[in-house]
């Protein structure tokens, strides 16, 4: 049970990082942390006590496997996360190119 709470703490750390940090790169890192907390939680949701990796092998009896479905889904979520992160880093670099800073308090062309 405490593992779930550790996940929750990790998620909160990520969200805190997104909300409180002023550096674009640190915000991106916050998003990555929060994303991994959710992925970890999803993988944990499929865990069972003393479970084995869900790999079908030739000469072993299959007993007590963990649920393979969350692992497949988490893999997909990681791939999506990769795309979003790459996109974000690219945008952050472009912002640096235009504004010469990573500080969000100095990046204020938009009003309202």
């Amino acid at each position: 049970m405490y593992l779930y709470f550790l996940c929750l703490i990790l998620f909160i750390v990520g969200i805190y990082c997104i909300l409180r940090k002023r550096n674009l790169i640190k915000i991106i890192i916050g998003i990555i942390i929060a994303e991994y907390a959710v992925n970890l939680f999803f993988a944990l949701a499929g865990y069972r006590i003393d479970g084995r990796a869900p790999i079908y092998s030739q000469d072993q009896a299959i007993a007590n496997m963990v649920d393979p479905l969350p692992q497949a889904l988490v893999l997909t979520a990681i791939v999506i996360g990769l795309a979003v992160t790459a996109m974000m880093v690219a945008i952050a670099i472009r912002i640096y190119e235009k504004y010469g800073t990573f500080d969000i308090t100095k990046i204020r062309k938009l009003h309202g």
Partner: peptide, 16 residues
Amino acid sequence: HEELEATFKYMVMGTV
């Protein structure tokens, strides 16, 4: 300038 700044804001909130 504006597009990039708006995108970053949109991305952070969209990802959350």
